[in-house]
Amino acid sequence: MKENTLQENDQANVETRRSFYTAFIYGIWGVITAALAVPAGLYLLLPPAIRKESEWIDASDLGSIPPGVPTEISFQHKRIDGWKVTSEKTTAWIVRPDEGDQVTAFAPQCTHLGCAYHWEERNHSFVCPCHASEFSIQGQVLGGPAPRPLDRYEVKVEAGRIKIGSLEPHA
């Protein structure tokens, strides 16, 4: 009788120890995996720290833009691409109202799949050659598959010069 209990006790001890080992192994492996996976996730998914604040680029002379007719201008801008900062040429469609200095600058890509669109004077609209998206002079979608209005740059006019900033976040 007594011996029996001892054996049972032993058996119970072995079981407890075994489940402790198992729990410990799973737990620690979980902790180590998490300690590697979380930084790895942040490393791959979070955007890198921003190196420089956006700056205003002197893009064009306001006088060279005819009022009421969208005009494409080109300018150099700094592109931060990972560890490289490159200066590259880019363009914008500038719309100058008939009166006042409140110009608008549209990014030159169609919001559908990024093709370069152009101004059609006949239709009085921006037309994308790829899938026939059409935008009004205010950038609103008039037709075609484009999912949202044209993207805009921040823009201001100083002393008769058009200054272009960064892309405005779209809604």
Binding site: L36, P39, A40, L42, Y43, L46, P47, P48, A49, R51, G82, W83, K84
Partner: peptide, 22 residues
Amino acid sequence: EAYNSLRYIMTEVTGGRLIRGL
């Protein structure tokens, strides 16, 4: 480029310093 990209990893990429440290 190697040097610039490593500097980028260490100063700009989130967690980059930790990963290189490991």
